[in-house]
């Protein structure tokens, strides 16, 4: 078949060129924030109420979470074409638009997670807070730490899942148009959040607990990725075509098949490293090698999460629903 098109827009032909690394970075950082909020809430809620001096065992992660999300929003800001019009996101609410839900949701998550971060700072660490008014707020918020942790747990789930819902709502883009995508994004968000806690935690027990959590999250992530591709392969012709860049060994599709290759190395490696940590006997203080191994496996999880977002954002714009299929009937 020979196809000639008069009047094509470079933005959409031969494939979509609208979202790039900026959006992929936002998806990663948004997911990381969501996962960090969920995991830090779990860490802090697991502590017994009878231990007031140890009320918040996870302080650094909730403190930096809103700033990670702000960095992600900065990338979004770079991507929108009419930056000065961004206020329109907050002058309306469109119930059918996941992006509208996201704009309002993220707008709420940033201040509330900031308050949660302040509420976790114990008296002996108040010197971390630069300004006096922050110290005062932190003191006032300390008693509400658990309630804020519960709210941030729910908000973390929201931030982790909504970006996947947003992409999956595009019927025109078969790779994204899957109900599994939001679950995959949420799973990836939780695993990267756990990895961040592992890297930042000082206590042995916290590192080990989240290493155990991460093993299960990585196992479910591998299962979800496999099911995602299987679902596309057994779906419509355009769905099947949309996953082919990941399995076509050619120069043209190098970034896609290499990403699958990397993921299939990274995730099993993480499982092995984390399994060794959990199985190993640890003394009260971690040795340098044990710390290195833990941080390396957590870092690999973060790299894996970033690769997933980059690969899916770019590959999702390669294949679209086509008239070829419709007109053959």
């Amino acid at each position: 078949m020979e196809l000639t098109i008069y009047g094509t827009n470079a933005l959409t032909y031969p494939h979509l060129h609208i979202w790039d690394w900026k959006i992929a970075s936002y998806l990663f950082l948004g997911g990381l924030t969501g996962g960090a909020l969920v995991m830090s809430a779990i860490a802090n809620l697991r502590k017994k109420k009878t231990e007031p001096h140890d009320k918040a065992c996870c302080v650094k992660v909730p403190l930096i979470a809103p700033f990670i999300l702000l960095l992600g929003m900065f990338f979004i800001f770079l991507d929108v074409e009419r930056k000065l019009n961004s206020f329109w996101f907050y002058l309306t609410f469109q119930p059918l638009s996941p992006m509208s839900w996201g704009a309002w949701g993220v707008g709420a998550v940033i201040p509330i997670s900031f308050l949660y971060g302040l509420s976790t700072v114990p008296d002996e660490l108040k010197h971390w807070l630069v300004f006096d008014f922050l110290k005062k707020w932190s003191k006032k918020l300390n008693p509400y730490m658990r309630r804020l942790a519960v709210i941030n747990f729910i908000m973390g789930i929201f931030v982790g899942i909504y970006t996947g819902v947003l992409l999956s709502s595009f019927v025109a883009r078969p790779l994204w148009n899957s109900a599994l995508l939001p679950i995959l994004f949420l799973n990836s968000a939780l695993s990267t959040g756990a990895a961040l806690v592992i890297i930042m935690a000082r206590k042995n027990e916290v590192k080990l607990f989240f290493t155990k959590v991460d093993i299960w999250l990585i196992l479910s992530e591998i299962t979800l990725i496999a099911l995602f591709f299987y679902g596309h392969y057994t779906s419509s012709a355009s769905h099947r075509e949309s996953i082919m860049p990941f399995f076509t060994l050619s120069n043209e599709f190098f970034p896609y098949w290499i990403s699958i290759l990397l993921l299939s190395i990274i995730f099993p490696l993480v499982i092995v490293l984390e399994f060794l940590e959990v199985k190993g006997e640890h003394s009260e203080r971690l040795t340098g090698f044990e710390k290195f191994r833990m941080n390396l496996s957590a870092l690999l999880v973060l790299v894996g999460g970033f690769i997933i977002r980059m690969a899916l954002i770019y590959a999702g714009q390669l294949i679209k629903m086509t008239d070829k299929i419709a007109t053959k009937f």
Binding site: N9, L11, T12, Y13, L16, I18, W19, D79, V80, E81, R82, N85, S86, W88, F89, T92, S97, M99, L166, S169, F170, V171, A172, R173, Q317, K320, M321
Partner: peptide
């Protein structure tokens, strides 16, 4: 046009590639 922020969600959503920036 006044309300458009140029987020490009509509371009991604259109199955007919009818839009541009």
């Amino acid at each position: 046009r006044k309300k458009c922020v140029g987020c490009k969600a509509c371009i991604a959503a259109c199955p007919y590639d009818a839009r541009y920036i």
